[in-house]
Amino acid sequence: MEAEQKADLQRYLTSARQALLWKLDGLSEYDVRRPMTPTGTNLLGLVKHVATVELEYFGLVFDRPSAEPLPWSAEDADPNADLWATVEQSRQDIVGLYQRAWAHADATIDDLSLGAAGYVPWWGEGRREVTLHRILVHVIAETHRHAGHADILRELIDGSVGLRTGNENMPPVPAEWWGRYRQRLEQAAQDAAGSGPERNVGDSSA
């Protein structure tokens, strides 16, 4: 029973990992690094961050540290140092780090039971005692969240969309359909807002 539960959890984690890396495929060095939001969110930075997450949660939390140096996680590191790649850090460096983090995490998952105890020192008081099961769920949720960020960034960069190779999970419609669809949504948004400046829901002054 536990083996089946573990396999299910690992399958969801693996699918999120693969989806996140797929979003880098075919992009230039600039595009994988360029900040796409006011807070600097970028594709390669998301991969670097999630690699760090796996190394910490499946390594340090269960007293199984990896040999990977993570200077961007040090207390004196710059804010958000784990969320972007420096010029010296190549795409291959970051992807390789993530793949090694997978292997380290998977070894922890294979070696420990779902009930194995861990300790998360950076969580709040009363929440630091954890199990492998809880950490698996936590990291799956975080990885899928960042894969969703990557979905949006990639679409903004070059219009590419989809869930993963061979399963885009998008309706089979011609390219021009999307323009009409977007206009329909825009019109609905304007109509809901009274076709004027945005107003608060419940505003009875109009």
Rank of each mutant, 00 (worst) to 15 (best):
Q92S: 13
K48N: 03
R100C: 00
A116I: 05
W102Y: 09
N200Y: 10
W178I: 03
I109M: 04
D31N: 01
A7D: 12
I140Q: 11
P172E: 10
S160D: 14
T165N: 13
E2M: 05
A81W: 02
D8Y: 01
V61L: 05
L21Y: 05
W178C: 10
V139R: 07
Y98M: 14
A77S: 13
T52G: 04
E75S: 10
R154T: 12
E168W: 07
A7K: 05
Q5K: 01
Y30Q: 11
A150R: 06
L156F: 10
V161L: 11
Q10T: 13
A19G: 15
T41E: 13
L185I: 14
A105T: 15
M36G: 09
W122H: 14
K48R: 12
D93G: 06
N42Q: 11
E56Q: 08
W123N: 09
V53P: 06
A19C: 14
Q89F: 03
Q187D: 13
I135H: 09
T131R: 06
L185E: 12
Q10K: 14
E56A: 09
A3G: 05
V47Y: 02
H49Q: 06
Q190M: 12
N42W: 00
A175I: 15
P71F: 00
L156D: 15
V95L: 00
H138C: 10
L24W: 02
A77P: 01
Q183P: 02
G118H: 07
N167E: 12
E54Q: 15
R34Q: 02
Q99T: 15
R199L: 09
L9R: 12
E176N: 13
D78Q: 12
D8E: 11
P197M: 03
E176G: 08
M170E: 15
P197K: 11
R100V: 01
H49N: 13
G194T: 03
M36P: 03
H144A: 12
E75H: 09
V139C: 13
T37E: 04
N42H: 01
N200F: 01
G118W: 01
S204T: 14
W72K: 06
S28A: 05
L55C: 11
D151L: 04
H146D: 09
Q99F: 04
V50G: 03
A105G: 09
N167L: 14
Y119N: 12
E54M: 08
P79F: 00
W22P: 05
G124I: 10
H144S: 14
I152Y: 00
P65A: 12
R154W: 00
A74I: 02
V50I: 15
G115F: 02
D78N: 02
S66L: 04
D25S: 08
P174M: 02
D191Q: 10
I152M: 05
E198D: 15
I152C: 11
A147C: 05
M170I: 07
E4F: 03
T14W: 10
S28I: 05
N167C: 08
L24P: 11
Q10C: 08
W122E: 09
R164H: 11
G196E: 15
I140E: 11
G148A: 13
T165F: 03
P71Y: 00
K6F: 07
L20E: 03
E68V: 05
Q5S: 14
E168K: 08
R164N: 13
V53M: 02
S28F: 00
V161P: 00
P65N: 13
